[in-house]
Design a protein around this nucleic acid. Structure first.
Lengths: 254, 254
DNA sequence: TAGTATTCTTGTATTATCAACAATATAATG
DNA sequence: CATTATATTGTTGATAATACAAGAATACTA
């Protein structure tokens, strides 16, 4: 646990190693999802500098040591980078740690960089704006990234994105995560379309309704109704997210 | 994503910050579980050096930059530290990343240290041996750590341990993790006692048997039988772990 | 304004699953 | 050989999931 160094059994004995020589750069990367145009999309930036110039990448950047007395919290860094690189600040509905990616060669530059990846959801996000050196930011459908060679991502971000997508799909089953994709007040149909979009499968409206209403703490009735759509149909009741974070029984995918 | 620094909006302007100044020490810590004496136990070392001298702590240490061309993989570091601090090398049944703990003040020393925590399982481990500076290593029942003030852990290791325990309990439900606590060949009763020990609840033997046998890829029949116990009773069939990593339907806790 | 289409919501019947526990199988012990 | 112990299988009633039908509340159209 923690540094209590015995002399390194080095394979590079051209140097006297001190504790400080083991320091590395720590970055954060954020897979920020939303649903737009009925598609499951992730926020990407187009890199404006090498390496991977002009490649798409997840937004992110270094955890800074010049903020606060002893540097910033990694989660703070994630929020800050999101703001700086894409202009998105409010409207972030959820953020949790996904995992840390620390292979020595994941960044081709001289300095080794490990990345703490975050999984986030932005429900009602304004259009992202690329800053000067991040060049350009946009939401891109995740299916498109998987399908197109031209949208392969920089660094190991394909792997991070893959893990993040799987996290999202899994968490829909046993958590109330889906509500984070919705507006403060939403209909059960909207919630169902979140599941359908992310899982890529159709769910029975009637059964879905009964399931989510049976799950304690998932939904709270606002007493209001959505305005009827132009295409007709009974106006749906409006709900807000309940206080529960996990749902029993889970909503299973096939 | 990754360093592409704009000038830091520092709160400490007594210095010109370069990219390298943001480097921090990266450690790994391992919550290695086993079941001994019918108790759910975790591997701890007693610290032989400050800070937290004489406190119990999870085994771990720095990710080294002097191993390999660009430093070692974090998972390698976890295995190495486990070996160095506790003498445990083979017999490790499972290791996965738990999460990264990166608060600026989690380590009271001058250098900031973030830790990538790992969750591991050792089924048939020899007795651990503390090395010189790690002082002493032992398995300790997790209930005891939660109950006794005297066994509060160093750093934020109580938090890490808590998360690791919850990870174990949750993964028993929907994964084949429980088999990792067992010997290569085991009976369904032994598997059930893994669940009972970690969940702290009794399960119906008959129903449990049917559930695990119904879960595809969970168990494979070896064709052998366990030798009958001295206390009598029908000898149980011996199974080995199947190839599946997740089980459907899950085995639910109440 | 009646009729039709559309969507939300509730109901129903069939089926599958789960939990409790009974029954059977196979061993050790005295 | 009866008793006890453990493993394994079976049974039954309760519960939950599924497919699908029916009802409710709206827009649109003629």
């Amino acid at each position: 646990m923690e540094p209590s160094e015995s002399p390194p059994l080095d394979m590079q004995s051209d140097k006297n190693w001190s504790v400080e020589d083991h320091k590395v750069l720590v970055a954060v990367d954020i897979a920020l999802f939303t649903i737009r145009d009925s598609k499951f999309q992730v926020l990407l930036i187009k890199r404006g500098i090498p390496p991977f110039l002009d490649f798409w990448a997840l937004p992110g950047g270094l955890v800074r040591m010049d903020i606060g007395l002893r540097g910033e919290e990694p989660e703070e860094a994630a929020l800050r980078e999101l703001r700086e690189e894409t202009g998105l600040s409010k409207g972030l509905g959820y953020l949790e740690q996904l995992g840390t990616y620390g292979s020595p060669n994941r960044d081709p530059r001289e300095q080794r960089v490990i990345s703490i990846a975050y999984f986030g959801i932005g429900p009602t996000l304004e259009d992202p704006i690329g800053d000067s050196d991040a060049s350009h930011a946009t939401f891109m459908p995740v299916d498109q990234i998987a399908a197109e060679i031209s949208s392969q991502l920089a660094f190991d971000h394909n792997e991070i994105l893959f893990d993040a997508i799987e996290r999202a799909r899994a968490k829909l089953e046993y958590s109330t995560l889906a509500t984070k994709f919705c507006s403060p007040a939403f209909t059960i149909s909207e919630l169902r379309s979140v599941y359908e979009t992310i899982w890529g499968a159709n769910l029975d409206p009637g059964n879905f309704q009964k399931k989510v209403l049976a799950a304690d703490g998932f939904l709270e009735d606002t007493g209001q109704k959505a305005e009827a759509s132009a295409t007709g149909g009974r106006p749906a009741k409006l709900y807000r997210a309940g206080t529960a974070s996990s749902i029993t029984p889970p909503i299973r995918r096939n």
